[in-house]
Design a protein around this nucleic acid. Structure first.
Length: 172
DNA sequence: TAGGCCATCTGGTCCT
DNA sequence: AGGACCAGATGGCCTA
């Protein structure tokens, strides 16, 4: 179908623009090259996005698919936004004198509700909630963190970074 | 072998 | 008019 469509379009161009076969081919190559470059630029941007995403990077780890990258990025942004909001609330409480009572020195101060993923770690793998915790977005195309594969082999999870029991037990 | 992911080509549409 | 953007079609590669 594409071929016949292409042929008919080519004939049209030949007729309307007075293009020779060679000129038409040059034009097609030029247009194809532009489109190729556009897609390469798009992929470079996606690579840049993957670089700052909290998931395991490295040559032995298969990179996230395009759709998984975008969905993970969206959830990551929402998670960070939630953390910022919570920070703002804490700061506001402090300035209004509503700070929580002081606690014993042995007790660590409360941590803002930062998801562990907000700490960029080279070996970090996103949790399920980060990958597809939002109700509207649960694509089957997103690999579960423990199920990231590289050339057929499951990628082992970093020690202590991913306590969720299903990570390695519930892979499809 | 089926399904997922991807790159490429292509024609149509919109914008400058 | 030319370029950017988009979506459909197609074929290749890889994995379960």
């Amino acid at each position: 179908s594409t071929t016949s469509k292409s042929n008919s379009e080519s004939r049209k161009l030949l007729a309307t623009k007075n293009l020779s076969e060679d000129e038409l081919q040059d034009l097609r190559l030029k247009i194809n090259g532009r489109e190729r470059k556009r897609m390469h630029d798009l992929n470079s941007a996606l690579d840049g996005l993957r670089e700052v995403m909290p998931y395991a990077h490295g040559p032995s780890v298969r990179k996230l698919s395009k759709i998984a990258t975008l969905l993970l990025a969206r959830n990551y942004i929402l998670m960070l936004q939630g953390s910022v909001d919570e920070m703002k609330k804490l700061v506001s409480d402090v300035y209004q004198g509503n700070a929580p009572a002081s606690r014993p020195a042995t007790q660590p101060p409360p941590q803002p509700a930062l998801h562990p993923a907000s700490v960029i770690h080279p070996g970090f793998l996103p949790t399920p909630s980060l990958l597809h915790g939002l109700p509207a977005i649960q694509p089957s195309s997103i690999p579960r963190p423990g199920c990231l594969r590289s050339s057929g082999a499951s990628v082992p999870l970093p020690q202590g970074l991913y306590p969720h029991p299903w990570a390695s037990e519930h892979c499809p």
